[in-house]
Each structure stands twice: as structure tokens, then as C-alpha cells.
Design a protein around this nucleic acid. Structure first.
Length: 445
DNA sequence: CGGGTTTGACCCGCGC
DNA sequence: GCGCGGGTCAAACCCG
């Protein structure tokens, strides 16, 4: 099964491979087998987002009275209502599927990486000579820890007791991480690998749907802005932590680095981010294929009118392998010249490859768009302009309550850190309290 | 009074 | 071994 995530900004080319909504269109067409003129022309344009399906159907209904009786019109309207409900339901299911796919794909990548790594290990033992350092090998330490969970009996791996040796964690966190094989297999690698999101935002933190408690702050070398340390407080012993720091070069850029996987149920918005960190970390740990997976996964070049570029980069200098999702900088001139429409049509947010480390953008079928795109939306949610535009657009498209994944379950204000439940700044009890920690400290220190 | 924040101290890994 | 820097702890403090 192949699912392509549709976004309001997606254009004509991509709709061709969205079976989910095309099926809906077909069903609509079945209800109108004789219609060939207006509706078809209408759908040619409405298809471009997929989400405009209902609009298309509405226009179809409006065409009907010319040739059908009132009873037929009523029946069609009933059917339209049913289709709308079904549309909402299916979209909900799709949403869930995409999240599940994100996690499963991350797990699959790790499993595949395990096999590849074992193969490489055996080859290196045979050769007995140092091979050139590759991205694959660079990230191996973290991956090795991950694989210990699944194969504790492997002699070359450290004992399970060393699983968390690299990071100080509470006993509760350790218990949570090792509570189950599945949990551990997804937790540990992400405890090592990190996902960093760079977003231009005035807010002290991007709203990612989780509750965070600040446990420390430190001045980092080379950056006048302090780095704040947060841990997830949605569940006792949740190992997820994140660091928030303003960019030294541009104080408007907020760098949020996530580490670990949640050990508890998450609200939709938080699930998006959690899946993203997991998937992105897994992609990172997948080695040389990582960059192509990210690059092609975000915008499959075969399906998009835009170059398959993104802002995912690997960091070789970080203590842990890190995926950086950069949503801040303008496209480089060369890329901009080659891709004049390299933007989210709706959001107007340029997406690009800021670094040259991602060298190839193959037209591969490999896809990991959902979680990555959700990260983008989560990060973009920190920007009032983008979120406002996004909300308005989705609302207009859906013709109903916005299902914006950035909305943190609530409408309007929740997008912009107004969500009383998910607002990381409110910290449960003080939504009206002005942001004291990050923004204040960043500006004052 | 409970929960979150602040901040100095401490721990640990790493490079020299 | 030593110093440095990142990450974490925990007592003090703040706020509703």
C-alpha cells in the first residue's frame, strides 16, 4: 500500500498518485456517470489539492438541477453529506495510518540497517584494514546501542547494562525505555540520534504538542544565547528531552533539538513530532541512504513540480548524529535559479538544501513524507504568519473544522502557543504567565 | 502549597 | 592528569 500525504499546498502533479482521494473522486463520478462537461472541468482544477474534493462535489451538485428532479437532488445531497462524513473519517484514518507508517518505517530502517551493519562488520573483519570514514560508520555508535536491545546476545556488542551509559538518565527513564522490546528498539536509537528543527520564531519554543519542564539552562560556547534544557512531563519517566537555543547568527531562529521517544500516548500534534524525531533519527542511523531518503521522501521528485529538495542535513560535528530540519533560510541562488517555484505554494516557506552534504536526489520510490512533513508543519506552526495562513487555507478547503496537524487539537489560538493543553510555555498551570524562561533569558543574557 | 523556573554546583566525556 | 565544555541535579526562589 502506498500513501502519499496530501497537503493543502500540493499541486496538480501530486494528486495523480493519491489513490485515497482519487477513489473519492471516482465515487463521486459514479454518482454522476452522465456528467462530462462542467464537473469535469471543475475537477481538473479542484483536484490539485485533493482536499478540495468536497468543493468539487458541491459544484457537481449544483449542476444537477438542470437535468434531475428534486428527489434526485435531495438524494444527491444526502449522498454528498455521506461522502463528506466519509471523507472526514477516511482522512482521520489516513492521518493515523501515516503516523503508524512513520513509526513502522523507522523500525524497518533500523532493522535493515542492522543487517547492513552486520554485513559490513563481517566484511571489515575479513579485510582487517581501516575503511574510509563514511556517514554510515560515523553514526554507527548510536546504532550499535540501538541494536543491543534487539540482539543482546551479540558478542561484539556491549552488555545491556551499558545501553544508557552514554547518557545520564533516571532509573525511571531506564525502566521506561526497556519496558518492551518494541519500545526499546525505537527509543534507544533516538536517545542517541537527534533531530534538530530550525524555525524562525519569536516564540520561546515551538509548539510541538507536548508538555515540557525546564530542568536546566547553560551558556553554550560560541553562542551568546543560553541553551535551555527541557524534559517531557507528560508521563513520569518519559525519556524525551529537548534543547532550545537561539541561533547565534540570527536570534530569530529557534533551534529545537529533540532526543528520544515518548513512552506514553501523545496528542496528535505531539505524535507528529514524535514520529518525526523517531523516523528522522532512524533515517539518520540508516547511514548513507539517509540523505537520499530524507531528500526524496520529503518531496518525491517524480511526483512533484518542485525539485526534490528539503532542508534535512546531517551533522558530522555534533557529539551525536543529528538530523537538522532547516525551515529558516532562503534558497541558495543556484537552487533558486533552477527552481523558481521552490516553495510551499500555500505557506510560502522556502524549502531547500542548505548544505552540500546531501549530494544526490534520486527519483526513487522510497518515501517518508508524512512524519517529515509533519515536522515541518509543527515547526512552521511556531510562526504566526504561517500558521494563520495554514489554518485559513485548510479551513477554506475543508469547509469545516480545521484538521491542521499544527493546531494541537484546538482551533485558532492553539497553533500559536495558545493551546492550554499543549503549550510548552504555559507548563500546565500558567497559560497567562508571560514566557519567562527562554525568551526573557535569551534577550536579557 | 504545589508546581515550575532559576542557577550554581556537580558529573562526565573528550582532547591535549 | 588536567582543563574545558556539555549535560544534569537540586536547592532556592517565584508565582498563582
Amino acid at each position: 500500500m502506498e500513501i502519499t500525504l496530501l497537503r493543502p499546498g500540493d499541486r496538480d502533479d501530486r494528486v495523480k498518485e493519491v489513490d485515497f482521494f482519487s477513489d473519492k473522486l471516482h465515487r463521486s463520478a459514479r454518482a454522476e456517470p452522465a456528467t462530462t462537461d462542467g464537473p469535469t472541468a471543475c475537477m481538473d482544477h479542484s483536484v490539485n489539492t485533493g482536499l478540495r474534493l468536497l468543493t468539487a462535489c458541491s459544484s457537481v451538485v449544483e449542476e444537477k438541477p438542470r437535468v434531475h428532479t428534486n428527489e434526485e437532488l435531495i438524494a444527491l445531497r444526502r449522498e454528498l453529506g455521506g461522502l463528506k462524513d466519509e471523507n472526514v473519517m477516511l482522512r482521520s484514518q489516513l492521518d493515523q495510518l501515516m503516523r503508524s507508517i512513520g513509526g513502522l518505517r523507522a523500525q524497518l530502517v533500523m532493522e535493515m540497517q542492522q543487517l547492513e551493519r552486520e554485513k559490513m562488520r563481517s566484511e571489515q573483519k575479513e579485510e582487517r584494514s581501516p575503511a574510509p570514514l563514511t556517514a554510515q560508520q560515523f553514526i554507527d555508535p548510536g546504532l550499535a546501542v540501538a541494536l543491543d536491545i534487539d540482539e543482546p546476545s551479540e558478542p561484539t556488542d556491549p552488555p545491556p547494562d551499558d545501553l544508557n551509559a552514554g547518557a545520564k538518565e533516571s532509573p525511571q527513564a531506564k525502566t521506561a525505555e526497556t519496558s518492551s522490546a518494541d519500545q526499546a528498539s525505537s527509543d534507544v536509537p533516538c536517545r542517541k540520534a537527534r533531530v534538530s528543527v530550525r524555525a524562525r520564531s519569536d516564540a520561546p519554543m515551538i509548539s510541538d504538542g507536548c508538555q515540557w519542564r525546564k530542568y536546566g539552562q547553560k551558556m553554550a560556547k560560541g553562542n551568546p544565547c543560553p541553551r535551555a534544557y527541557y524534559r517531557c512531563t507528560m508521563a513520569v519517566g518519559c525519556p524525551v528531552r529537548k534543547q532550545v537555543q537561539r541561533c547565534a547568527e540570527d536570534k530569530e531562529i529557534l533551534v529545537t533539538t529533540y532526543e528520544g521517544n515518548h513512552n506514553h500516548p501523545l496528542p496528535p500534534a505531539a505524535t507528529a513530532m514524535a514520529n518525526t524525531t523517531s523516523a528522522a533519527a532512524a533515517m539518520l542511523l540508516s547511514g548513507s541512504s539517509t540523505s537520499t531518503a530524507i531528500a526524496s521522501g520529503f518531496y518525491p521528485s517524480t511526483a512533484l513540480p518542485y525539485p526534490a529538495s528539503t532542508m534535512a542535513t546531517l551533522s558530522a560535528s555534533a557529539p551525536f548524529p543529528t538530523v537538522t530540519l532547516d525551515l529558516t533560510q532562503p534558497p541558495p541562488t543556484a537552487a533558486a535559479a533552477a527552481a523558481p517555484v521552490q516553495r510551499f505554494p500555500l505557506l510560502g516557506q522556502p524549502m531547500y538544501l542548505p548544505h552540500q552534504k546531501i549530494t544526490s536526489l534520486p527519483s526513487m520510490g522510497h518515501r517518508l513524507p508524512a512524519s517529515v512533513m509533519e515536522t515541518v508543519t509543527a515547526a512552521i506552526a511556531s510562526d504566526p504568519n504561517f500558521t494563520a495562513a495554514l489554518t485559513a487555507a485548510i479551513s477554506s478547503i475543508m469547509g469545516g473544522p480545521s484538521r491542521d496537524p499544527c493546531s494541537n487539537n484546538n482551533s485558532n489560538n492553539s497553533i500559536n502557543n495558545g493551546d492550554h493543553h499543549n503549550n510548552v510555555n504555559s507548563h500546565n498551570g500558567s497559560p497567562a504567565r508571560p514566557p519567562q524562561s527562554c525568551l526573557t533569558n535569551f534577550s536579557s543574557k
